[in-house]
């Protein structure tokens, strides 16, 4: 009796396993990677599927690091064809790609993305410098030449021109690409204004410049930018850090705070004057070109003028396009499957 039940259980397992064992040639592009690049890839995927009638690509938001891990897993149908990244591929990731046989990868910069520092429409109008943002958000700051735990609880304590209100800032968690970019573009540059911090040794300096405060005023609000937007609506003195597209979609309830005197708008990000913007990339596994159906057409659609060019449909989603020359260069590299040169060839 026991054996009969075990047998039938095993039979079910075999039937289920058997149907899955048959691998059919993949006719669907698989894309992983950064949640920041995700909306742009989404747009291209939908356009591509509608215009060509080919199978809709599968676009998964895994985060930049998670995407790299899947992308560099190897060559073959079970591995992703493209990964999006809100930062360049790291050397360690490049090496892991090579070790797994992924040795021809084209790097494509699609444009820039702004990070907004914003508050509710009814809140105080503010204009801050990166140094002031560093003082408001870092875990340790410089006071009278000494490096001490951050004593500031009100904006006015940092600079008397700022409002007399508690510092409350909602921002992304350390796992987020937006957080990495914020630290790199605001915190690290902001701390350069302080001589005592500049004088520190490398490791200690990095620590001071990169660590966000944990004592309350900076609140990690999770990966969901919509949650931050909602919380700002509830508290006029609260500020939030999130992707520019969320500010753009919510201009009736939120307003952007000027950084270094420049407010985040489509124009200021496009001309590069808004100081908190970062490059966005995607990476193509060249070994899959010509094997996975539609991959060539898809990447050419991605880099086409209609998508990433001036006024293209990606700019409608908040992408800041590259310059004309860079776009031509990128198109050329994609067309000729040029291997990335960031870490030698």
């Amino acid at each position: 009796m026991i054996s009969r039940f075990l047998l039938s259980a095993a039979a079910i397992a075999v039937v289920v396993g058997g149907t899955t064992g048959v691998a059919v040639a993949r006719d669907q592009i698989r894309i992983v990677g950064s949640s920041t690049v995700f909306p742009f890839t989404q747009a291209v995927a939908e356009e591509f599927a509608n215009a060509t009638g080919m199978n809709a690509p599968v676009v998964e938001s895994t985060g930049t690091g998670g995407g790299m891990k899947i992308f560099c897993g190897g060559v073959g149908e079970e591995h992703a064809d493209i990964t999006g990244a809100s930062r360049a591929m790291k050397e360690s990731e490049y090496q892991s790609c090579k070790e797994n046989g992924v040795d021809s990868v084209t790097e494509v910069q699609i444009g820039f993305d702004g990070i907004a520092f914003a508050n509710a429409k009814g809140g105080p109008a503010l204009s801050v410098t990166k140094a002031q943002l560093f003082q408001a958000l870092a875990s340790e700051v410089e006071v009278d030449g000494e490096i001490v735990a951050n004593p500031y609880t009100k904006w006015s304590e940092i600079d008397s021109s700022l409002p007399d209100a508690e510092i409350t800032v909602f921002g992304p968690p350390p796992t987020s690409g937006t957080r990495d970019a914020w630290v790199e573009l605001v915190m690290e540059e902001g701390c350069e204004a302080f001589t005592a911090i500049e004088a520190l040794e490398d490791d200690r300096k990095d620590e001071v410049c990169q660590r966000m405060r944990q004592d309350g005023p900076f609140i990690e609000a999770g990966e969901n930018d919509n949650l931050i937007v909602q919380r700002l609506g509830a508290d006029e003195n609260a500020y939030g850090i999130f992707g520019f597209s969320f500010l753009y979609e919510n201009l009736d309830t939120l307003k952007g705070v000027g950084v270094e005197g420049i407010e985040p708008t489509i124009d200021t990000i496009a001309d590069g004057s808004y100081p908190v913007s970062r490059p966005l990339f995607f990476y193509i596994k060249n070994a899959h070109r010509g094997v996975i159906q539609g991959l060539d057409e898809f990447v050419m659609e991605y880099v086409s003028e209609a998508s990433m060019g001036d006024g293209g449909y990606l700019t409608e989603r908040g992408l800041i396009p590259l310059s004309m020359e860079l776009r031509d260069k990128v198109r050329d590299e994609v067309g000729n499957k040029i291997h990335m040169s960031r870490y030698g060839s």
Binding site: Q28, T41, E46, V58, S61, N226
Partner: peptide, 26 residues
Amino acid sequence: AFITSPPGGLMEASTALPTQVFIWAD
């Protein structure tokens, strides 16, 4: 994942109701 067509079979990529809500919420 973001897919603009319903799955044609068990092996084709798709979302599920709760994960679709998750994507839209973001």
